[in-house]
């Protein structure tokens, strides 16, 4: 059975695309180092570590076996606070 805490009621299946990932406008033309949605993930200790692992796994060759674990460069958001931030963004 699916854990409802991990799924979103407001987001619909499909790509989660946003325009201007790092917002750059006339009044705000200092591009931040990270996009808003990346910042949501990095700001959360648990998700940030999982993102770091996904990046590291992605840097290793796909399908390679490190410490007898199959590398996975995708992950699912499991923190409700981050999910609700994504919902607000949409």
């Amino acid at each position: 059975m699916k854990n409802n805490n991990l799924s979103s009621k407001l987001l619909h299946p499909g790509k989660f695309e946003i325009a201007n990932k790092r917002k750059h406008s006339f009044w705000n033309n200092e591009m931040p180092l990270t996009s808003k949605r990346a910042r949501f993930i990095i700001s959360n200790e648990i998700e940030s570590k999982r993102l770091a692992n996904a990046v590291r796994n992605g840097r290793a060759e796909k399908g390679t076996n490190i410490s007898n674990q199959i590398v996975e460069n995708k992950f699912t958001i499991r923190t409700k606070a981050v999910i609700s931030q994504f919902e607000k963004m949409k």
Partner: peptide
């Protein structure tokens, strides 16, 4: 320095799946 973008997809279970892409 390595630059990444995020491929974010909402799957059929409405979970947010993140994949960092070079």
């Amino acid at each position: 320095l390595t630059f990444y973008k995020l491929d974010i997809e909402i799957n059929q279970e409405r979970e947010i799946v993140i994949e960092p892409i070079l």
